[in-house]
Write a protein that binds this DNA or RNA. Structure first.
Lengths: 334, 334
DNA sequence: CGGAAAATCGCAAACGTTTCCGTTTTATTT
DNA sequence: AAATAAAACGGAAACGTTTGCGATTTTCCG
């Protein structure tokens, strides 16, 4: 369990450990012959530089903290995958923290990450309150928010153009012949507010009447969508399509519809938002709006690296374009 | 960006920084009055202990490395979720690394983790070769393998009783009246070898003939199962049920069956393995064998903590029990 | 061949903690 | 009240690295 240090290889090589350090770091002020000899020796002795000692003097850990409500979520785990890959390719390692459902834990992990001296923090907020919640720390360490719109907040973030997503989705339904489209979702976050707005804008342009179903539930899950849809379908159906604000909700709707023998897409078209992996499954085949997760993650770490390495102040709002994924739950009306 | 150190609050409190350190760590050799005064002061000044400096002297980072082939995978992200939560509740943070598809990268990240001085490593292997691949490092740092059986290898791991999983699944199909059950899957890892064995054992006990479909594909994905099933269904079907060695494969089979108008469960029953979240989705509703992911993750970090904190040598193989999840893809034969 | 510039390399400080050990102060006992 | 024990605190080393600066050696040119 005892690892070999610089001092050890210095002794073995008969030089000072400063020389070894310089040889490894490629300093020009070292003879190329001794350098090769030292490098070979390091390899033989199995030396790996101690990053915590290194971080201590460099005042830089090459560590970024990744905070997600729960990695156990298809959308976030995909973001995390690309974020970690991209970060590592640039020499950073990521510390993963689940912030869970409550703000207290979110604050706790951010504090923890600060103690760990991370160079930056990438956070997908668990609620719109996150911004206030961790405000005290965001000026102590470079931070970028991921996937959630902050609108006018003085914080850097990358997110998709949510408004545009629902806009193009609504337009698509219109082109399919739908004239009565129900918007199914909440507006508890800026993101969801924007999604609702995109739908409203499209309706206005196209001269469509707007139908809404809101919910007071605190989580947008399958179970949630199911419960809401059950109630919804017990009343007369005066619309031919549903725009669900999240894929999870759409999946819940699908379940309720199946149980109540409402044929999707036969009698009712359905479109979701997010393009989570499940939507592409056989028998599901849900038409939806894709968030470019890979691009989002990569841009976010690029943004963070810029803050870290160039000390870039200020903030930037990076808005990416969503795309329509046509699948099997939307039918052309005749 | 400049954080406050021990020295700073020591100066402000008019004591030595040794005293501050002791006050924070709850050392008994400090006056309760000065302790309170110092703690209050730390709070006011916003002091947080620098973990990298602390790690340096303590020779312990309270960090565990989590290596997964790709966090972008429902099964692994669920494991990761519970592992991180459990680890943090015991004072550890986790560094996440995707090892990707190739062994070289897996070795690279493990080496990296060692440089980071992690106290232990939790790894879900990407292939049976992983053991050999990182053997050089596993005696330098406590390591436990997760989710993959290593059989007789001198390494600690926690995994499900894969053999038992297929055994009970096969028995269940038998009780439903099925007499010709096709086993669909590979045996490229010990885990999958064991799954095949469980099926074989059940068949022997029940006096059933064994049917196999193997594959030479290197990844067990939906697409893979789909391709294999397409070919399979083009030939005469002389079995009434399929046991897919993974849920992913089962999903691929489902897709192929739908396309070729083979009714599941009407004409063919299907059972999977893993109980990944997608299987519980509406319209999918796949009968499967559950791996207790939460328990696996928690046990794995407990095991790792034991090695770290008590210096436990040797190795332990922790085998957990799988359970049958009855859903809608298996029909009782009349 | 002498001397100066260039090329190598070593010394030691610094990073922010924890903890051993010694010193000072306070409390207790005789 | 003096001696002794206990309690409270400070000094300083140590963890393993990077790097500025000085010291030493080599090289090179006139």
């Amino acid at each position: 369990m005892k690892s070999v240090t610089l001092k050890d290889v210095a002794k073995a090589a008969g030089v000072s450990y400063a020389t070894v350090s310089r040889a490894l770091s490629g300093s020009p002020q070292i003879g190329s012959d001794t350098r090769e000899r030292i490098i070979k020796l390091c390899d033989e002795m199995g030396y790996t530089t101690n990053y915590v000692a290194r971080s201590m003097v460099m005042k830089k850990t090459d560590l970024i903290g990744l905070v997600v409500p729960s990695i156990d979520n298809a959308f976030m785990s995909e973001l995390a995958y690309y974020a970690e890959m991209s970060a590592r390719s640039h020499g950073y390692n990521v510390m993963l923290c689940n912030s869970g459902p409550d703000l207290k834990q979110e604050k706790t992990v951010v504090k923890l990450l600060l103690g760990r001296q991370v160079d930056g923090i990438l956070i997908v907020p668990q609620s719109p309150k996150t911004y206030e919640n961790i405000r005290a720390y965001t000026d102590q360490v470079p931070t970028v928010f991921l996937s959630e719109n902050l609108r006018d907040q003085p914080q850097s973030y990358v997110a998709v153009d949510n408004s545009r997503g629902t806009y193009i989705g609504t337009k698509y339904l219109y082109e399919l012949g739908h004239r009565d489209i129900l918007y199914f979702g909440r507006r508890h976050t800026t993101t969801h507010q924007l999604r609702a707005e995109g739908y409203m804008k499209a309706c206005q342009e196209l001269g469509l009447q707007q139908h809404f179903v809101n919910s007071e539930f605190s989580r947008s899950s399958i179970a949630n969508g199911y419960d809401m849809a059950k109630e919804l379908f017990s009343k007369p159906i005066d619309y031919s399509a549903i725009f669900a604000s999240t894929d999870s909700n759409a999946l819940g709707i699908l379940k309720a519809a199946d149980e109540m023998h409402i044929d999707i897409p036969g009698h009712l078209s359905l479109i979701g938002f997010d393009n989570i992996p499940s939507t592409g499954l056989p028998r599901i085949d849900l038409t939806t709006i894709e968030q470019p997760k890979r691009e989002m993650a990569v841009q976010a770490v690029d943004m963070l690296r810029d803050k870290i390495e160039n000390g870039t102040q200020g903030y930037v709002h990076q808005i990416l374009l969503p795309t329509l994924i046509k699948r099997g739950t939307c039918r052309e009306l005749d």
